[in-house]
Computed example of a mutant assay.
Amino acid sequence: MIPAAFDYVAPSTVDEAVRALSAAGEDAKVLAGGQSLLPVLRMRLAAPSTIVDLGRIAELRGVRDETDHLAIGAMTTHYDVQRDQLIAEHAALLAKATDTVADPQVRHRGTFGGSIAHADPAGDLLAPALALDAEMVIAGMNGRRTVPASEFFQDFFTTALAPDEILVEVRVPKFTGWHAHYEKFNRVAQAWSMVAVAATVRVDGGTIAEARVGLTNMAAVPVRATAVEQALVGQPATPEAIRAAAAHAAEGTDPTPDNNSDVEYRQELARVLTGRAVSAALAG
């Protein structure tokens, strides 16, 4: 199917992009990598009056070391996130999760910020961003503001972004020396997560000193498995301790049933995958 007609704008700066969005009104759409927007346009599930293409804004690409955190440009591709040495050293969980996103073609075109801003609860980068206490830098007509991941994701496909705002970068605190793993369950290769678990832990002398665990597709927004984190801290890095902590994974979750699974099945998946994710992180 052919998309409905729309105006096309390709600004070269963030300020120009914000002005274009503001001028176009609520019917405008932002084009990042296009891996989510273009299929919707082709099926005419959306008919924006204007498309604002961020592809020419150099400021939105790349990873920077900002001493106590990494700044990841919103237009940085999944492929570049996978291979960036700063991310591998200081935010390994993001690299692990990005490895599971779709297929190589999508990872070459899709963008880190585009996935975050799309806010699909089955998307594989939301839970890692939440687990790592990431912050979103947003630009709008009134300047820039910073929103923590815990407040950025608000509902299905809904974020703190206003219609005339764009995501500029994602700031991720450094987790240097932490072990990490992303455990994903899907029915077929390259599909969205039915359930997934993002886990990163710091071990000191054989004891789990700190732990962060995020759940994918267990609610309308990514969920932090705080009960699991609390149960892990101070425990020996043993299979028994991991299994006992993982039993808490589904607490407080509200997964939406669909044709693939009901609530109880997803909650059991969360417990099983949490145990696998933490075990794999510790073994890595």
Rank of each mutant, 00 (worst) to 15 (best):
Met1Ala: 14
Ile2His: 12
Pro3Arg: 03
Ala4Leu: 13
Ala5Gln: 10
Ala5Ser: 07
Phe6Pro: 06
Tyr8Thr: 11
Asp15Val: 13
Asp15Gly: 14
Glu16Val: 10
Val18Asp: 00
Ala23Val: 12
Ala24Gln: 05
Asp27Val: 10
Ala28Asn: 11
Ala28Leu: 12
Lys29Glu: 03
Ala32Asp: 03
Arg42Trp: 06
Arg42Thr: 08
Arg42Ile: 07
Met43Gln: 14
Arg44Ala: 06
Arg44Val: 11
Leu45Gln: 12
Ala46His: 09
Ala47Tyr: 09
Ser49Trp: 12
Ala58Met: 14
Glu59Ser: 15
Asp65Cys: 08
Thr67Val: 15
Leu70His: 13
Ile72Ala: 01
Gly73Arg: 02
Met75Gly: 05
Met75Ser: 06
Thr77Gly: 13
Thr77Asp: 04
Thr77Tyr: 15
His78Lys: 11
Tyr79Ser: 07
Asp80Gly: 05
Val81Asp: 01
Ala88Phe: 09
Ala88Asn: 10
His90Ser: 04
Ala91Leu: 09
Ala92Phe: 08
Leu94Val: 08
Thr98Asp: 08
Thr98Ser: 15
Asp99Trp: 13
Ala102Pro: 12
Asp103Lys: 04
Asp103Ala: 12
Arg109Val: 13
Gly110Glu: 02
Thr111Tyr: 12
Gly114Val: 08
Ser115Arg: 09
Ser115Ala: 14
Ile116Gly: 00
Ile116Val: 09
His118Asn: 10
His118Tyr: 12
Ala119Tyr: 01
Pro121Asp: 01
Ala127Leu: 03
Pro128Thr: 03
Leu130Glu: 00
Leu130Cys: 07
Ala131Glu: 00
Leu132Phe: 09
Glu135Asn: 09
Met136Glu: 00
Val137Leu: 09
Gly140Ser: 07
Asn142Val: 14
Gly143His: 15
Arg145Ala: 11
Arg145Ile: 14
Pro148Gly: 06
Ser150Tyr: 02
Phe153Asp: 00
Phe153Trp: 03
Phe156Ala: 05
Leu161Ile: 09
Leu161Ala: 02
Pro163Gln: 15
Glu165Lys: 13
Ile166Arg: 07
Val168Glu: 08
Val168Asp: 01
Arg171Val: 11
Pro173Gln: 05
Pro173Gly: 04
Thr176Phe: 02
Gly177Arg: 04
Trp178Arg: 00
His179Met: 10
Ala180Asp: 01
Phe185Ser: 09
Ala191Leu: 14
Trp192Glu: 03
Trp192Ala: 15
Met194Pro: 02
Val195Leu: 04
Val195Lys: 04
Val201Thr: 10
Gly205Glu: 02
Ala209Tyr: 12
Ala209Val: 07
Glu210Gly: 02
Arg212Pro: 03
Arg212Ile: 14
Val213Trp: 00
Met218Lys: 06
Pro222Met: 03
Val223His: 08
Leu232Pro: 06
Thr238Arg: 00
Pro239Trp: 13
Glu240Cys: 11
Ile242Asn: 02
Arg243Trp: 10
Arg243Phe: 10
His248Pro: 07
Gly252His: 08
Thr253Asp: 01
Pro255Cys: 08
Tyr265His: 12
Arg266His: 01
Gln267His: 07
Leu269Cys: 04
Val272Asp: 04
Gly275Ala: 11
Arg276Ala: 12
Ser279Ile: 13
Ala281Lys: 06
